[in-house]
């Protein structure tokens, strides 16, 4: 039972980590607070659902198509809106303005989905066999989710660590003013963060659609969790987002096994508040990073 709880917690946490890492890329580089992030996941989920239902396209193909679509959306948003906004607005104002822009975008995306597809939940079956190993029994889709999250996050980390372009993005996240002086291509870093950030959200949605009913309003909770996780781990800190995601995933499974399911939110937000009281910059955030 303990093994089951921990493993399930890790699979849930891995998806949270995927969402948080992508949210953090967008925030870390551009200081944009994307409260429409969960809605991008929703778009990915619908893409996966409709492709499977209408054209028999298996979800693992959608794992490529959904991020392509949402990544393109990210590119268009950056070129069409945020490139201009970031030139005109600076400092704390970016965060406030972006919050509202994304609130507007979120309204448009959510309600368009609700107009097009109605609020009816949709679902399909795939990877729904049960796999047993070492006293653990889980649905295949959980394993697939775990694998996809690990591969995707691994790819992002590898890019940031080993490629010269990634180095630039990382430098930008760590120190914006200095990186511009040393001649890092800021426009590339921003474009990269927009495309990859949005693409990973779409990917997460395509994965989630395998085991959770798809609705126009499914994104909200993922946005909230995403923000809690990146604040917990430290804004702009990619590793912090991964650990934060796993912590919240484990709180949701093992944590409520110890306290009771009705304490789920008290537990998550309680830990969140407590961490910020002790470390106002998050678990792995740098002092004065705000």
């Amino acid at each position: 039972m303990i093994a089951q709880l921990v493993f399930v917690g890790l699979t849930t946490g891995a998806i949270y980590a995927l969402i948080a890492v992508s949210l953090n890329l967008i925030y870390g580089t551009m200081r944009l607070l994307n409260i429409g992030h969960g809605d991008m996941a929703m778009v990915g989920a619908y893409i996966s659902f409709w492709l499977f239902t209408l054209a028999d396209v298996p979800p693992y193909v959608s794992f490529l198509i959904a991020p392509a679509v949402s990544g393109l959306f990210g590119l268009l948003l950056y070129r069409g809106m945020f490139a201009g906004l970031l030139r005109r607005v600076q400092g704390d104002a970016v965060e406030g303005s972006s919050l509202l822009v994304f609130f507007g975008i979120s309204m448009v995306v959510q309600n368009s989905a609700s107009l097009l597809f109605s609020g009816t939940p949709r679902a399909y079956r795939y990877f729904d066999g049960i796999v047993e190993f070492g006293g653990i029994a889980v649905t295949e889709s959980r394993l697939v989710a775990l694998a996809v999250a690990v591969v995707a996050i691994g790819a992002v980390l590898a890019f940031l660590k080993f490629s010269i372009w990634g180095l630039g993005v990382r430098a930008l996240i760590q120190n914006r003013a200095a990186s511009a002086i040393v001649g890092i291509n800021v426009d590339f870093a921003f474009t990269f963060a927009s495309v990859v950030g949005f693409a990973l959200a779409g990917l997460a949605g395509a994965v989630i659609s395998m085991y959770q009913a798809v609705t126009p309003f499914m994104g909200g909770p993922y946005t909230t969790v995403g923000f809690v996780v990146i604040i917990l781990g430290g804004l702009g800190n990619i590793n912090g987002a991964i650990i934060g995601g796993l912590v919240v995933g484990l709180l949701e499974t093992a944590g409520i096994a110890l306290t009771g399911p009705n304490f789920r939110d008290l537990l998550i937000y309680g830990v969140f508040i407590a961490v910020l009281m002790l470390r106002p910059q998050g678990l792995f955030g740098r002092k004065g990073a705000h």
Binding site: M1, Q4, L5, G260, N262, D265
Partner: peptide, 14 residues
Amino acid sequence: EYPNSITDMTAMVG
């Protein structure tokens, strides 16, 4: 009892 935000029931079903 569980809240509307529930995402995992492993503990409860256990």
